[in-house]
Structure formats: C-alpha cells, structure tokens
Nucleic acid binder design. Structure first.
Lengths: 237, 237
DNA sequence: CGTCAGATTGATCTGTGTCAAACCCAGTGG
DNA sequence: CCACTGGGTTTGACACAGATCAATCTGACG
C-alpha cells in the first residue's frame, strides 16, 4: 500500500499521458493528443476525494490516467445509487460538457487516482473540427448507452440475488482478478449494495448464501468467484 | 380514427421529410438533408408492427416522420421492460449502427407511423465528414445518456408509487395533453406497468389510489392529471 | 488497549408480485 | 339483434423478497 501510494504521487508527464490517451482515441495524431493536455491539468487525487457533485456546472471533463473513480447519483434520503466505476483509460464528465448542462452525477475517487482535466472548449473544438475524434466520442457515448439500457432492464426485472451475481461477474470482467483469484476491485459492502441497488444487510446475507452454496469465497473484503458458470446461470446470462 | 388513418396512409415526399429533419438536425444544409433520404426509404407502418428485434443486426437507423414507437427489452420470462417511447422528430436505432453491434432493444410501432430509413453507410459517412452533424448526434446520444442515468436511479430507489407518478408526469411532458385534459398518449395498463417496471395489477391499484386521493381522473384508458404539484411531490421532483 | 468504521446476525414489518376469478366492452358473425 | 368471443381491466386473497431496526462483532489503527 505504502509504495503504491508513492508511485502514484509522481505525476506523469504529457508524453506519458499521450501514450495512454492514444489507446482510447486511436483516431488522433500525436499533435492532436497533445492539444488535449497541459502539464498543469494533470493532477493527483487522494482516495475518496470528490471530483464534482451532481447539479454543479463543470467546465471540462476528465481522462483517467490511473486509479478508479465512482460515478453515482444521490436519490431518496441521501442514499446513493452507483452508476458505474471507471478506470484507467476511461473518460468521464463529457456528457455535461457536451450538453452544456449541470452534471447529472457525482464523481469521487474510489482509490488514489491521477486525472487529466480537459477543458470544455478544447473538447468541443476537437469534436467540431476532427471527425475521427467525434467518431470515437460517439463510440464511447453509445457504448454507455447500451450498458445503461441493459442495466435498466436488469434492475427492473431481476431479483436482488440475480443482480448481485451479475454485478460480481461484471466486476470480475471490468477490473479483473488477482493472482490468488480474488476480485481486484476492493469494495465495501455498502458500495456493493449501492451498486446493486439494495440494502447493505441484504448484500451481506446473499454473499453468505453464495458462500454456503460454494459459489464464492470471502475473507473480509476479498471475494473470490469459485464457480463462474453457476453464477452466470443465477445472473441469467 | 378513420380519417386519421387515411391521412397517414399518404406518404410524404422527400421535401416534406427534409423539413421535419431540419428541426432535428439544424446543422445540416438542405443538400445534406436530402442526402439522408430517398423516396423509397419512407414507409408507412401499421400500429403494433415490429421494426426490429433485440439481438438482430440492423443496417440502418430510423427517423420518425409521424407516429409513436415503443423501445423495449425483453427480460426474464418474456416480460418486457419499456425503455422509452419516441415520437415525431426522433431518431432511433443509431446506437447499434454506430457500435456495429446487434440491436440491444426491440422496437415496435405504438401507433400508426411513417418512418424514414437511413442506411448505416449514409449515417456513418455523414458523421465522419460533417462535424456539425456529428455534434448534433453527440447531443442526441448524450441526452439519452442523462435520461438513462436518472431512470436507473429512480427505478432502483423509488417505490412503485413514486415511479408511477413520475412516469405519468413524464408522459404528460413528452406527449402533451388533449384539450379535455387527458394524456395524449394512449397506453394500456400493461404497457404502463412495463414502463414503470412493475406488475399490471399494481399499476391498476395505484391508479385507483391516486383517483381516490383526487390526484387523477380515469375513464378507461383516458387519464387526466388533476393535481400536478401533488404528483410531483409524490414522485419526488 | 480504546475507538470507530464496517461487517454480521436476528427479529420483524410491509410493499409488491402472483394466482385466480370476475367483469367490461367492442367487434364479429350467425 | 343478440349471443359469443377475447383482449383488456379490476378486485381479492395470499405469500414472500427485501427493507428496516437493533444489537453485536470484528479488525485495523492511533
């Protein structure tokens, strides 16, 4: 934990960021990529920092150089609904920029993170002047759209037990697993319940059910999926 | 009903379609708009016709010249989850085209409708070559993204009673009300429940609750909202 | 050690789903 | 003109998933 923190404290230079950006925006030249970045817009964030809050106006979006961020909405009596986790290589906040609307979600770091800030003018200019970039952005937006639609159906129709299985699989997919088989994403029961859209106690009970059925293994926050196939069946995939 | 049907049977010519398209894509010249359309891609659909089904590959998207269409996903034991209704001036199906993926939703006409088919090559070309169009498309995609996020939070956290109120208000907003005050959108209890994401019987009971509380008036499928403010309070808006 | 956030377990309570039966009404055909 | 049909609607009875509340436990960290 300690040395990881240190590693992240060292901010990458623009060239390094460009290299990562290039993986996300294959259609841009090195020149154009550099146009997106400035050294002083690269910044380190501590774990749990709020990047921006729902309802505020943001004047730019963020590219994740490293770390994991949590995107959520606050509903009903302050309970948060997690929409998704984003990681290295992902871009977030562009929706509000493009729509010229206040943010419809809050974002905070879920781990330490290094983010590159991209001002609205720069983003919008590039969309207007570079059709390849506009195309890449369309891809990103449309991918999110598909994910959202699926999410809506699932949350509306599946039981909590099914959804939890699905989310565990999704986490395994998106963030991978350690050498020892545990999910890489370190997440509290509360966050997990906010992601699934249920009560914390319910998640705990269901995880324990899974454990008893031999589907997963739990040691504290470490979760190992033992029987992917059966989990998929439960999730209805 | 009769003459309305007749009116719709007469297909509009390209110029008429262009005029409607122009309201949706303000950034295109008349030339470019015409490039999107061909007379033989304008077609009339009967009420309840399937445009395309989830999982199939579609080679183009659709612009709604007139009528209302229903976008839904089939989950769990065939129960459908309605994602949204689209109407005159809306574009649908572009997600799959842009992502080069099979459709993630099914679409069918909810009323008689006239749709203009826009082949993938035409759409993609325009995105690549016309930054104004790409910008308009980004706007559309990002608007849908915001709607989806809100929907996810609501469906996950609000009670059915709250959601039903919200959806009634949304329907009033999107489709308007008749002179006599009834919602313009004619919808069965079943569709309404699939939209809210609940059982038909539950919707019926809740509507009847609202009626008893003096919030709405019902005569068969005609629903009149009597007390918008109170409904908003219930919906939590 | 003491503290505190997070995890767990148990005991209720209740909103909704499910099943079954009846009803309403418009359209069809004899 | 009336019986018949079938889709949509309504009502009632009942069961259960999951929320809520309360109490206890755990483990990391100062």
């Amino acid at each position: 934990m300690k040395n990881e923190a240190n590693k992240n404290m060292i901010l990458p230079d623009i060239d390094l960021c460009c290299r990562k950006l290039k993986q996300t925006f294959a259609n841009l030249t090195d020149e154009e990529l550099k146009g997106l970045l400035r050294q002083d817009s690269i910044r380190h964030y501590k774990k749990g920092e709020l990047i921006y809050a729902e309802g505020t106006r943001i004047k730019g979006c963020y590219f994740i150089y490293s770390g994991i961020i949590k995107i959520y909405q606050t509903g009903h009596e302050g309970k948060e609904q997690i929409i998704k986790f984003d990681q290295e290589g992902d871009l977030f906040g562009f929706r509000s920029v493009i729509r010229h609307e206040p943010a419809c979600t809050s974002v905070e770091t879920h781990s330490e993170a290094i983010l590159c800030y991209i001002p609205d003018s720069v983003l919008l200019n590039l969309i207007r002047n570079n059709s390849g970039f506009a195309y890449d952005m369309m891809q990103i937006a449309c991918k999110e759209l598909g994910d959202s639609n699926r999410y809506i159906r699932d949350i509306a129709q599946k039981s909590v037990k099914e959804r939890l299985a699905e989310i565990l699989l999704l986490i395994a997919d998106d963030f991978g697993i350690e050498h020892d088989g545990n999910l890489k994403l370190n997440i509290t029961r509360e966050d997990l319940s906010n992601f699934v859209g249920t009560a914390t106690e319910t998640v705990i009970r269901l995880l324990s059910d899974y454990k008893n059925e031999g589907l997963i293994e739990i040691k504290g926050r470490k979760i190992k999926l033992l029987h992917i196939e059966k989990l998929k069946t439960i999730a209805g995939i």
